[in-house]
Amino acid sequence: MKRRKLLGYAGAGVGVTLGMGVLNQAQAQSAGVTIRSLGHTAFLFTGGGRRILVNPFRSIGCTEGLPSPALPADIVMISSRLFDEGYLNDLPGEPRVLTDPGVYDFENLRVQGILTAHDRQGGRRFGNNTVWKWTQGGVTIVHMGGIAAPLGVEEQILLGRPDVMLVPVGGGPKAYTATEAVQAVQVLKPKIVIPTHYETTAAGDSCELAPVDEFLSLMQGTPVTRASSGSLGVRPNDLPSQGMRIQVYQYPRA
């Protein structure tokens, strides 16, 4: 395996400058971002001249029937070193890999990683989880990773109100249950909610996650859009002016 450029930083508020330039705000606002589901918590975000891959996994267990998410990207973010959200072995090219909480400044892009616990025992069982926040194509995105801990006041302030929030809903020992996910959504009040980390037909027999249905039932009254494909384009003008909507993706199959 060739050496990857791993960028880790402990302590939010510390900056890593990886490039310099002047942001063209008008171009960023008009471009938007395409969000492509790769299954589980893995997504590819394309927009603003960049491809950002979050949480590539190894196809095993709950991701057994999913194709490899190891796609070309400029930046790769992982929420933990667990196989279902931090598998880096097959990545093509030489992307920048972000692994730890902190503030990372690229040219025309700032990424913030926020530390949370990955379980309900303060991280003693599965360690820590990094929640990622960034703005791409004029759309502010929060990817919650595989979080299981409730959001504290500090985390709420850092995350603010995102345009798009990707949140695990399938439960298990290291991710939100449907009820916990609803609580997190009610705290952050995003404009678009994308549920992740739930059981699908691609899961193997060892998968113990719940399907997305319980989360949708608890969010009754919130409009739900089911994508006919694995990609969704979001522009700032597409965002709901009031309230929120839920976007459910069709996951790929191997």
Rank of each mutant, 00 (worst) to 15 (best):
M1D: 07
L6G: 12
L7P: 02
G8M: 09
Y9A: 15
A10M: 14
G13E: 12
V14H: 12
G15C: 07
T17S: 03
L18D: 02
G19A: 11
M20L: 15
V22E: 15
N24I: 04
Q25L: 13
A26P: 00
A26H: 06
Q27A: 15
S30L: 13
S30A: 15
A31C: 05
G32E: 03
G32I: 01
V33P: 02
V33C: 01
T34H: 02
I35Y: 07
A42C: 06
F45Q: 06
T46R: 08
G49R: 10
R50L: 14
V54D: 00
N55S: 06
N55R: 03
N55L: 02
R58D: 06
I60C: 06
G61V: 11
G61R: 07
P67S: 07
P69E: 09
A70D: 07
A70I: 09
L71Y: 09
D74V: 10
V76D: 04
V76K: 00
S79R: 00
S79D: 10
S79F: 04
L88G: 05
L88A: 09
N89C: 08
D90H: 06
L91R: 11
L91M: 08
P92E: 13
P92N: 12
G93I: 13
P95M: 13
R96K: 10
D100N: 14
D100M: 10
Y104W: 07
D105Q: 14
E107R: 11
R110K: 14
V111I: 15
T116Q: 04
A117Y: 15
A117G: 10
D119T: 07
R120N: 14
R120P: 07
R120L: 15
G123M: 08
R124P: 09
R125A: 15
V131G: 00
W132I: 11
K133R: 14
V139S: 00
I141T: 03
I141A: 06
V142M: 12
M144P: 03
A148Q: 07
A149T: 06
G152R: 03
G160Y: 08
G160S: 10
L166V: 14
G172T: 04
K174F: 10
K174D: 14
Y176M: 08
Y176E: 05
A184P: 09
V185K: 03
Q186F: 00
Q186L: 12
Q186R: 13
V187G: 01
L188T: 02
L188E: 00
K191M: 14
P195H: 08
P195N: 12
H197L: 11
Y198K: 11
T201M: 12
T201P: 05
A202V: 06
A202P: 09
G204R: 13
C207Q: 01
L209C: 08
V212H: 02
D213K: 10
E214H: 11
M219H: 02
M219P: 00
Q220M: 09
Q220W: 08
Q220Y: 09
G221C: 12
P223M: 08
V224R: 11
V224K: 05
R226L: 09
S228L: 13
S229N: 11
S231N: 09
L232R: 15
L239R: 01
Q242E: 15
Q242A: 15
G243I: 09
G243M: 10
G243N: 07
R245G: 08
Y249G: 01
Q250T: 15
R253G: 12
R253W: 10
A254Y: 07
